[in-house]
Write a protein that binds this DNA or RNA. Structure first.
Length: 276
DNA sequence: CCCGTAACCTGATTGC
DNA sequence: TGCAATCAGGTTACGG
């Protein structure tokens, strides 16, 4: 479900609900979510007594900064966090519960059970999977036009696939790659290593502009996304191609086409987006 | 090393 | 209507 703008929105709403709250108990109902430590009892013991000091983000990962540990969470397709009074009924698909010492609970809900949690001692998180292979966040100063050009240049893969690769840039997913390539007027099947410097820079600009605007709009809600306060996003009104197959292109009027690239649904305006 | 594909899950929607 | 196939904002493990 969530890509960078949704995770950023979740982070901000969650901060309002979690900062300075102390974990008194942890319950894990589906242990496959917790990847590290292996032993969920260890997971629990390392968290009890810890206070959430901050919540940060890199790419699509949320990082709960506690006193001595960092909880790294990925929501994958359907993961959601919410904070509720402990006496409220626990909805279906709630897999991990962090009980605070004030009568509230931070609950992790995930219909498809794809989400992951890794717990590390503070500072260790960057040296291990899953964060150690991650490319720059698009809002980092290290994500430059030159960096992107160099990365695109050295692969035969199709540009859409490369932009989805989190080791290249961390945060773009299926919606925002399609939107980025539309805005840059590049066809998703264009070979990455055939792109000119100018085209690569157009992609760089389009990605940042698209993500910024989507963050401003609170993300995109297609089916199930809500932030941690339960609000939907608004960016879906501004989509040019994603989910608009058969509808007229907002720029030229030609019907948006849907195709499959690397097993992902891909939306393109074949008039606006140039193939090579 | 690099790349494409199956696997991980459940539920909603499409198609025969 | 019924039921099977297909599809979903994602990543990873495993082979070739």
């Amino acid at each position: 479900m969530p890509e960078l703008p949704e995770v950023e929105t979740i982070k901000e709403t969650l901060k309002q609900l979690c900062i300075h709250k102390t974990i008194a108990d942890v319950t894990v109902h589906w242990s496959n979510i917790v990847k590290c430590p292996d032993d969920t009892d260890q997971f629990k013991y390392q968290l009890i007594g810890q206070t959430i000091r901050d919540i940060t983000r890199k790419g699509k990962f949320l990082l709960f900064q506690l006193d001595d540990v960092v909880l790294v969470s990925h929501l994958r397709m359907e993961g959601k966090f919410g904070v509720h009074p402990a006496h409220k009924p626990v909805p279906k698909h709630t897999h991990v519960i962090f009980a605070f010492n004030n009568g509230e609970e931070l609950r992790y809900n995930d219909v498809r059970k794809f989400g992951t949690m890794h717990l590390f001692a503070k500072g260790d998180e960057w040296g291990h999977k899953p964060l150690n292979q991650l490319g720059p966040d698009p809002f980092d100063a290290t994500f430059t036009p030159e960096y992107l050009y160099q990365r695109l240049k050295k692969t035969e893969r199709v540009v859409k696939t490369v932009l989805l690769d989190q080791t290249v840039v961390a945060g773009l997913g299926n919606i925002y790659v399609d939107e980025t390539l539309f805005k840059a007027n590049i066809h998703p099947l264009h070979k990455a290593n055939k792109l000119k410097k100018k085209e690569s820079k157009a992609i760089w600009e389009a990605s940042i502009a698209t993500l910024r605007e989507a963050v401003d709009q609170g993300g995109t809600t297609i089916r199930s996304y809500v932030n941690s306060q339960g609000d939907i996003g608004m960016f879906q009104q501004r989509l040019f191609v994603y989910g608009r197959d058969g509808d007229p292109c907002k720029m030229c009027g030609r019907a948006i086409v849907k195709m499959k690239i690397g097993d992902r649904g891909t939306h393109v305006c074949v008039s606006c987006q140039k193939m090579k």
